[in-house]
Simulated scan of single mutants.
Amino acid sequence: MTGAIIKPSATLRSLPKACQVSFDGRPPWAVVSTTGVVAALGIDRGLLATWRNRGIGPTELPASWFRPAVGQPRHYQISAVLAWLADQHGEAFDAEACWVDHLRSNLGAEFANMAWVRRLAGNQSLVQGDARFTANGFRQFLALFQPDAAIDRIPENFASAQGA
């Protein structure tokens, strides 16, 4: 076939390791849309959608946390994408350690603790890149940073809001 576009296929095992992925210097607790995920992973947007529909993609943040937008974008916490990548390679991933390491490498050891992660996450605005939180959604997002919250994944009670 002349002129046919051939897209390279990717498999879950061919994805980069979590330590090899960059989200343009954004902190691992930040939020990215599908566009940011596919750019960082170097994969096709449709492939990520296929994995999402099969239930084998990274954990999304609930759609109800964000203002409606054209195209109904999906949103992910960067550390959830990194945890998913680590899982694809059979590696352990500690989101809290990832967050603290980010602070240590960017701000110094004196700022490398969860209290600073919570402070910096709370100082982010309702708009992060192309993600626009609702006020209530942002409060729920910040609740993920409380000491008793599950760090490496979205709490199960928010899973039902994904389809909303």
Rank of each mutant, 00 (worst) to 15 (best):
M1L: 09
A4N: 06
I5Q: 05
I6Y: 10
I6R: 11
I6W: 03
K7P: 00
P8K: 13
P8I: 07
A10V: 13
A10Y: 02
L12W: 07
L15D: 08
V21M: 08
D24F: 10
G25R: 08
W29E: 06
A30R: 12
V31D: 04
G36Y: 11
G36L: 09
V37E: 02
A40I: 10
G42W: 12
I43M: 11
I43H: 07
R45N: 14
R45C: 04
L47E: 11
L47S: 11
L48E: 06
W51H: 13
I56T: 14
E60M: 14
A63T: 15
W65Y: 04
P68Q: 10
G71P: 08
P73M: 05
Y76W: 13
S79N: 10
L85Q: 08
E91H: 13
F93R: 01
A95S: 14
L103Y: 02
N113K: 10
V117R: 04
V117I: 12
L120M: 15
G122C: 13
S125N: 15
G129V: 06
G129E: 03
D130G: 10
N136Q: 12
N136Y: 03
N136L: 09
F141P: 01
F145Y: 10
I151Q: 08
D152T: 15
R153F: 03
P155R: 04
E156K: 07
F158S: 01
F158R: 08
A159C: 07
Q162M: 11
Q162I: 15
A164W: 12
